[in-house]
Computed example of a mutant assay.
Amino acid sequence: MGNIGSCCGTSEGTENRKMVPADLHSSGAQQNKKAAVQQKGNRRPDTLQCAENAASTTANPVGASSKYSGFSLHGVQKTSPVGYSNESLSTQDKAVRGKFLAKNVVTFFGRYKEKHCDEILEEGVARFCSDLNVDPAEFVVLALAWKFKAATMCKFTREEFTQGCISLQVDSIESLLDALPSLENEALTNFRDVYKFAFQFGLDTDQGQRTLPCEVAIGMWQVVFSKQTPALLSEWITFLNVSKVRGISRDTWNMFLHFTDNIATDLSNYDDSEAWPSLFDDFVEYYRTLTDKQEKSGESSQQDSDSASDLKVNEESGEKEENVALESPHSDSSSDIVEVAMAPTQNEDEMECVQSEPVTSDNLHS
């Protein structure tokens, strides 16, 4: 009976069956299955749809935002779930956006590039500035070239244009127009860098230039200082033209910024014993001579003005005296009137004397 009872599954037999190795194995398998389900639940969803499904099964209160709500339209998760760093996702986001921008910038560049070469040359730059509604000689265009790291005026290579647009995060005229104000402020903040860039930008590297032609340097000074004009810039340009300077070296270019930052407007603190280029010594001498002439001319003009004022006062006083003399009842004009009145009387007496003489032939012949 005992053997039959154990075969038929009595209580004692049931308890014994729970301890068999097969059942122990089955229990372990159940635990492993539960662990696998939990691990699967923690996996990052592969698509936006999976993320939405995962978010709908969470126990968040009604109206609470999902932890996967930061996905972009391109499937790049902006807000990382647990187990992923925000820094790595930010890098991935930038990489995807950079790739997207680069594709659009290719089209943007193609609107202005030359047909016979892979560069934007003078004509394309002119159309580019026209679309931006800016003059090529404006400071913001120089700032744009500085941001693009352009090597030469009136030319953008594909790499310069592409990298510049990506750094500004723009891919069209409209987006670039929106970025221009902040770009100009950035250039003014880094004005010394922009100033040094302007010299190299003005050189014709294809011709091997190492100094700027004077007319190019003057034009570049007028552009780079259009937002912050030094007091002596006009006199400096006049001096260069009068002196017929042919070229401006890099050292002279850089020292002029130092000159405008540290030398007083009246040049009172300029020391020619310091290591200034000789051109600055000549300019200081020219300016002081010009100032002395202007001061002397001013003094002479003041003296002439004072003399003219005195003469005018004398003339006015003379006119007043004449008016007073004409209006006075005791003036000498009455005696003149009497003399004039007496004159006809004397003439009449003479005429009577002549008429009283008898008319003779001698008188007639005489």
Rank of each mutant, 00 (worst) to 15 (best):
E285I: 02
S268K: 10
W276A: 01
G298D: 02
Y286M: 00
K293N: 05
V313N: 07
E322F: 13
A264G: 14
S309H: 06
L326R: 09
V313C: 06
H330G: 09
T291S: 08
D310W: 12
Y270D: 13
A264T: 14
F280T: 01
A264N: 13
K320N: 03
E285A: 12
S317T: 15
E327T: 11
Q294T: 12
V284T: 07
E327A: 15
D304R: 08
F280Q: 00
Q294N: 09
Y270N: 01
A275S: 10
L290M: 15
F280H: 02
K312P: 07
P329L: 13
D306H: 05
Y287E: 03
S305I: 09
E321N: 10
L279P: 00
K312C: 10
H330F: 14
A325Q: 13
Y287W: 10
K296W: 00
K293A: 10
N269W: 11
W276C: 02
K320H: 11
A275G: 04
V284D: 04
E319H: 09
S305Q: 12
E299L: 11
Y286K: 02
G318M: 14
D272S: 14
S307V: 12
E299K: 07
F283S: 03
S305N: 05
R288T: 06
S268P: 06
S317H: 07
K293V: 04
E319S: 11
E322W: 14
E319C: 12
K293S: 14
T289P: 01
S307I: 14
V284W: 07
S301L: 09
E327Q: 14
G318H: 12
L326P: 00
D282V: 05
D292T: 14
F283N: 01
Y286P: 03
V284G: 04
D292I: 11
N269S: 07
D271N: 08
A325P: 02
D266L: 00
T291E: 05
D310A: 11
D282G: 10
D310T: 14
Y286G: 00
S307N: 08
A264Q: 11
R288G: 00
E274G: 04
T291G: 00
H330T: 01
K296L: 10
R288N: 09
S273F: 09
N262M: 03
N269G: 06
P329E: 12
G318T: 08
S297R: 15
H330V: 02
E319I: 09
D281V: 00
A325H: 13
N262Y: 11
D304S: 09
S305Y: 07
D266K: 05
S309F: 10
N323R: 15
N262T: 14
Q302G: 05
F280S: 02
E321K: 15
D271I: 06
E285M: 07
G298V: 00
L311N: 14
L279Y: 05
S297L: 13
S307G: 02
